[in-house]
Simulated scan of single mutants.
Amino acid sequence: MIYGANGYTGELIAREAARRGLKPVLAGRRRESVEALARTLGLEARAFGLDDVTALTAQIQGHALVLNCAGPFSATAAPMMEACLRAGAHYLDITGEIAVFEHAQSLDARAREAGVVLCPGVGFDVIPTDCVASALKAALPDATHLALGFDSRSGFSPGTAKTSVEGLAQGGKVRRDGQIVTVSLAYEVRRIDFGDGEKDAMTIPWGDVSTAYHTTGIPNIQAFIPGSPRMIASARRANYVRPLLGLSWVQKLIKAHIARTVKGPSEEKREQMPTFVWGEATNARGEKKTARIRTANGYSLTITGSLAVVEHLMTARPTGGAHTPARLVGADLVTRLPGSGPLQIV
């Protein structure tokens, strides 16, 4: 089942799944749009919300897995994970939200007992960076610090934009001595060559602050994206209005504007915009290993990456529990996706 199939990314994944001959059930809250897409693709459609976990479990019962594409995942992941655990269905999603990854880890024992895989983050968030983290851990096993990041000029989908607004209100996040701590937005700025030339870059609260720790055990983790001086200054100014951004009516106002104005990048635009992914591991002696890989555009990678994990679960028999993409499928997952170059470590 693909839930949120009527959203920007969900529809892209559903269309590619149908092109491959897969027969997912398409689901979402909005009956009209889900059924219209299902008719076009010759697939079954279901419309239901996530408010009643018992009813949700009944909808999922009988499915091998659910791929949740309905963001923000702060609202959809927890009830869907619960329903999957009750129904015995594997759970995947395409989130990049730290809280969702940590929630999945908190359910690890239940998932193991149920034989259910919980693996959020099977899109661009966080397949490439998770694979880079895993490869760097293998290259420098005693690493104590890990920095990850990516250079992407792709536009936002509506769901990603709404998630970003929530993230601004929650501040920056880094992992320090094994614990996730809240820091200011653009907490650290440094020069980084992600693979397309050296640029100013700032820390962001990316999902790897959670997932890379569970993949590698490295206790200190930061995530970076490039930013112009103006962008970095704007992020730092946002620290002063974070309490305002956290107000529910402000969130609703901004998200309503996003829903009206943000459409997501076209296929032509996605094809013209590859992504450069970078990572750096450092040990206590100051020794470093640096990794880089060029991948497809983030949304294109989300399509192929999520379906690669779906197909892995449909053919393999993994141990139940909370997983990260690199632990579930392997650190070479990103290199096997269309548009990816080799993963180079120096």
Score class of each variant (00 low, 15 high):
residue 309 V to R: 13
residue 204 I to F: 14
residue 129 T to I: 02
residue 346 V to H: 15
residue 75 A to H: 02
residue 58 A to R: 12
residue 2 I to M: 15
residue 314 M to W: 02
residue 311 E to H: 14
residue 283 N to G: 10
residue 128 P to G: 04
residue 163 T to F: 02
residue 77 A to L: 03
residue 51 D to Y: 08
residue 255 K to Y: 00
residue 190 R to D: 08
residue 189 V to N: 04
residue 70 A to M: 07
residue 187 Y to H: 15
residue 131 C to F: 03
residue 183 V to I: 14
residue 113 E to Y: 05
residue 102 E to H: 01
residue 230 R to Q: 13
residue 237 R to I: 07
residue 167 G to C: 12
residue 196 D to H: 04
residue 66 V to Y: 06
residue 148 L to P: 10
residue 184 S to V: 05
residue 173 K to Y: 12
residue 318 P to E: 09
residue 18 A to Y: 04
residue 89 A to G: 07
residue 290 T to L: 10
residue 41 L to G: 14
residue 29 R to E: 06
residue 46 R to Q: 08
residue 42 G to R: 05
residue 251 Q to Y: 07
residue 72 P to W: 06
residue 113 E to F: 04
residue 175 R to A: 07
residue 292 R to T: 09
residue 339 G to S: 05
residue 320 G to S: 13
residue 64 A to L: 11
residue 149 G to Q: 14
residue 336 R to Y: 12
residue 172 G to A: 14
residue 92 L to N: 00
residue 19 R to C: 08
residue 310 V to Q: 01
residue 300 S to F: 04
residue 301 L to G: 13
residue 94 I to N: 00
residue 74 S to F: 03
residue 266 S to L: 07
residue 101 F to M: 01
residue 286 G to I: 06
residue 195 G to V: 07
residue 265 P to T: 08
residue 19 R to A: 11
residue 162 K to M: 00
residue 318 P to V: 12
residue 60 I to H: 05
residue 295 T to P: 10
residue 5 A to P: 08
residue 265 P to R: 08
residue 149 G to D: 11
residue 213 Y to F: 14
residue 231 M to R: 07
residue 272 Q to P: 13
residue 184 S to N: 09
residue 62 G to C: 00
residue 325 P to S: 03
residue 158 P to Y: 09
residue 18 A to R: 02
residue 217 G to N: 03
residue 93 D to K: 03
residue 282 T to M: 15
residue 249 W to F: 08
residue 342 P to W: 06
residue 6 N to C: 13
residue 292 R to G: 05
residue 131 C to M: 04
residue 311 E to G: 11
residue 227 G to T: 10
residue 66 V to D: 01
residue 14 A to V: 01
residue 177 D to G: 12
residue 143 A to K: 11
residue 202 M to Q: 14
residue 308 A to L: 15
residue 91 Y to D: 01
residue 85 L to D: 04
residue 205 P to W: 14
residue 337 L to H: 15
residue 18 A to H: 00
residue 199 K to G: 06
residue 166 E to F: 01
residue 199 K to V: 09
residue 244 L to K: 09
residue 123 G to C: 04
residue 84 C to I: 01
residue 16 E to A: 11
residue 216 T to L: 04
residue 317 R to P: 02
residue 158 P to V: 04
residue 202 M to P: 08
residue 308 A to T: 12
residue 313 L to T: 00
residue 193 D to K: 11
residue 115 G to P: 03
residue 156 F to H: 11
residue 27 A to C: 11
residue 92 L to H: 02
residue 107 L to P: 00
residue 260 R to T: 06
residue 178 G to V: 04
residue 37 L to S: 15
residue 191 R to N: 01
residue 133 A to N: 02
residue 271 E to L: 13
residue 233 A to P: 00
residue 207 G to E: 13
residue 292 R to H: 12
residue 334 V to D: 10
residue 84 C to T: 01
residue 338 P to C: 00
residue 244 L to P: 05
residue 11 E to A: 15
residue 222 Q to F: 04
residue 293 I to D: 04
residue 325 P to N: 05
residue 44 E to T: 05
residue 51 D to N: 10
residue 117 V to G: 09
residue 47 A to T: 03
residue 57 T to C: 06
residue 308 A to M: 15
residue 36 A to T: 10
residue 302 T to S: 12
residue 133 A to C: 09
